[in-house]
Computed example of a mutant assay.
Amino acid sequence: MVISVHAFPWDVLGDDGFVDRFAQTGADAVTLAVSYHSTRAATPLHPTRRFVDARHAALYRPVREQAWAVRRLVPQAPDWTGTDDAAGEAATALRAAGIAVNAWIVLAHDTRLGLLHPDLTVLNCFGERYPYALCPAQAEVREHCVTLAGEALRDLPVDGVSLESCGQMGVAHIGCHEKTDGAYSPLVQRLLSICCCTACAASWAARGLDPEQVVAALRDAVRAETPLPEQTASALLAARHDATADMLAEVLAEVRRHAPDAPVTLHGHPDPWAVGPSPGLAPKVLPLVDRVLVPCWPTDPATAGLVSALAERVIVDAYVTVLPPTSPDRLSEHVARLREAGATRLSLYHLGLASAAFQPLLAALTKEFRS
């Protein structure tokens, strides 16, 4: 039973109490963000601040010109950390305290780059772009993610690697005062999450589909709220899975070049149509990784089914949050169900975001999972 807690570099830097709070959780490792999307983060227990406004996605390692030369997709360094190697410095501090560190790398979720290069983003069947979603079917996106992973891990000793958004983001995106929640049924959200960019269309054509007919069929299905024909849907899903698998294989080659002994965890979902930070898993990607981090934030009993769907095929790491709107009184039984469903690892979100009132939950869940 291995347990990790998530954190941002700014949670560690400038806070001598972070190591003590980690020790109180009883966890085994910190999963530390090394590249991350834009966020406004609370820092309730930091001695000098209460918020960090990370205005754009950033690489929290040095952005080296020689690594990114002649590329269109170039990550931006953060100007809110006071250092160009916040993740490196935080990892060094943690390891000096005897704490294992997993590198948390977010790959294809970057609104700033999507706005600068819309042709590389997910395009729905109505011609609307999702700027936060770089499409893995695009060769430039895959190359970007490979370089991003390599630069995140360059000269950074780590005990594990956690890959988020290694696949397609979809229609849902929490941010920017989101006003789409509940507007579309799950079926329509699935249809609107099918990318129709040039690279995806070329992949459809290679499978014998007419891209114009596919786009028209998608629009009709959205308007009528009806599923696509099974044969068409299967071909589109296969195209998405192939692009994701190609990107994962390329990223893993780079990850293992820099961290050959570090086990790799992939954020993924057993629903093959799932999109977002934890995209749907194609069967052929499971042998490529050491374990899968399954999103288990909802505390209802059905969530355990996500774990049991994968537990016989891969090591499952259950991803649980202690933060609202989670009900604290339901978390203990929730974690027990996940363990019984086959999860052998637990990742807790989030040591840096949890206030003093929520810190004891981290320790309680660690104890429950190991009981």
Rank of each mutant, 00 (worst) to 15 (best):
A172S: 12
T344R: 15
E164P: 10
R256T: 06
H258P: 01
G170T: 05
L361A: 04
A93M: 05
D84I: 09
G182V: 05
A309E: 09
T303L: 14
P328N: 12
S347T: 15
W204N: 01
C145N: 04
R330N: 13
V322H: 08
H267P: 00
V314Q: 12
A253H: 10
G150I: 11
E333W: 05
G342V: 09
A133Y: 04
L113A: 11
C145V: 00
A96Q: 14
T366L: 10
V158K: 00
A87R: 08
V30L: 11
L187Y: 05
D317R: 14
A199K: 11
P118L: 03
E254G: 00
Q168N: 15
I174H: 14
G175T: 08
V307A: 11
C135W: 00
A96N: 13
I194T: 05
A357C: 01
A343I: 10
E312C: 05
C135H: 02
P324S: 09
A304N: 02
V222I: 08
R330G: 09
G280T: 10
A23G: 02
T303Y: 13
V146I: 06
D85F: 08
A206G: 15
D300V: 15
H117M: 02
L228F: 05
E225A: 14
S4Q: 14
T303F: 03
S203L: 07
P260I: 02
P328W: 07
P283T: 03
F8K: 09
E254A: 13
H334N: 07
S332K: 13
E340C: 11
V214I: 14
T198S: 09
C135V: 03
P287S: 05
R223Q: 13
P47K: 13
P186D: 06
V34Q: 12
G175V: 06
V12Q: 01
